[in-house]
Design a protein around this nucleic acid. Sequence first.
DNA 1: GGTACACCTTCCTGTTACAGGAAAGTCAAG
DNA 2: CTTGACTTTCCTGTAACAGGAAGGTGTACC
Lengths: 273, 273
Amino acid sequence: MLKISEFSKLTQVPTKTLRYYDEIGLLKPARIDPWTGYRFYTVEQLPRLNRILALKALGLSLDQIKAMLDEHLTAEQIRGMLRLKRAETLQRLEEDQTRLSFVEAKLRQIEMEGTMSEYEVILKAVEPIEVAGVRDFAPDQAHISETFGRMYGMVMAEVTRQHAAFAGPSIALYHDEGFPETHIDIETTQPIRGTFHEANGVKGYTLPAANLACTIHRGSFQNLGSAYEAIMKWIESGGYHIVGPSREVYLQFDPNADPNTWVTEIQFPVEKG
Amino acid sequence: MLKISEFSKLTQVPTKTLRYYDEIGLLKPARIDPWTGYRFYTVEQLPRLNRILALKALGLSLDQIKAMLDEHLTAEQIRGMLRLKRAETLQRLEEDQTRLSFVEAKLRQIEMEGTMSEYEVILKAVEPIEVAGVRDFAPDQAHISETFGRMYGMVMAEVTRQHAAFAGPSIALYHDEGFPETHIDIETTQPIRGTFHEANGVKGYTLPAANLACTIHRGSFQNLGSAYEAIMKWIESGGYHIVGPSREVYLQFDPNADPNTWVTEIQFPVEKG
DNA sequence: GGTACACCTTCCTGTTACAGGAAAGTCAAG
DNA sequence: CTTGACTTTCCTGTAACAGGAAGGTGTACC
């Protein structure tokens, strides 16, 4: 018969933990003095405690351990729990690996620039988006904004004509990889709710679901470049690659207002590996 | 001005989380209607939220993020936090790797044997232990127990003669690697408290601190073999290796009692890699 | 026999980053 | 005016304990 502190010294398990295991019924003392309430353990309880510690080292929860020890599960059930745990561990492993490369990238960046970056890139999964839109070529970089305006006007006219309800800020897509000088393949869309019929060159369709690497840019479009750079760096340092056209979401855009009030989100569909 | 659910849809962050961030002062709404209490956000707050999410993705706590954003730390402090996080992540990564190999080993074992094993092996770190002991050779396997008895008698006699206080169950050490047939290098020790002077062939010294792979065996010493096997398998599957003599701790041993009551812990000092 | 000190008990709080849900007030559409 | 979608605050629960308070116990020592 060992007092709790003796058992604790023997097993390296703190008394707090032993009392907790008693409380949740995972490891009851061999005897409890009914008068003083003192807990007494025996060396015969060591194998059980060892089993508990071993299963805990595998990452199982105390609830699971209790089930494994007390409700003598079938081998199949135990296999199931272990397979699940294996999958979880594997996933956490991969997450931690990307986390590690991001931390290291951020460290390098701070070493270089001496400060936190202006743009923070995050990954988000978006659902498919129903839109009305047009896709066309801008003749060259100098006429992008003009072409855009024309395309956007077409979309707006048709959306209002069909009384379609807006379902969020408008989104532009850039289908080229890189930044070609001429024949720039761009697309202007407006998310809508409800049905939409193709008319006057404006089509109704759905932007696919995607995992997007995103960042937010504030101010005029002239300085979008560094936002794009930040995303590129992020994609590279996380081991991702681009799997579709980039998007620009015009969260706040009024051509008549001060460009400093404009807010744009830049998004690149990416995949791991 | 966006209501909380609109901001939530825009950012993919649940309203619960936004309210929580408000509560802890991490992201206050741009305006709170003083009459209704409704929270209102603006797109200008997106960059801050993005920064929060990006830092969270690096594994930083909300407290740390708050400090980074609000108490504009020096670049040096930020570097420190990131370096710490890098170290933590790296460690978790390694832990998860060994955890994964253990889970896989256990899975294989269950596939083979169809049940949980009798012996569970755990790793524990032990402090140095002051002992009185003798080391000698047993002529062959058949005379181990006899030699042991003689050595143990010597130790006990000298410990009681010097009035040294016992400090735990006695420990045997096996210095050979493998199991030689003759000239077996064994050591018998008794942990004690206080000073001890070498006399009659019994020395006082200290067993070194170590990381030990341990398991508990119940019953007579004849069946110790499978306990040793279990530890060996564990050591191999975890990528450890043996770095010193194995120990047997006689937690409960009375030669006159039923051997089924005996409890022995087997320990191998190990290191990673 | 008293006392100091180590040890034991129960009970309460705090940890992290929210999730679930109840009760009650608010807003816009039909 | 009603309905339904939203909003608020507040309470509880999560996992596995750690820290500490208040009060009872055991024993060694003077």
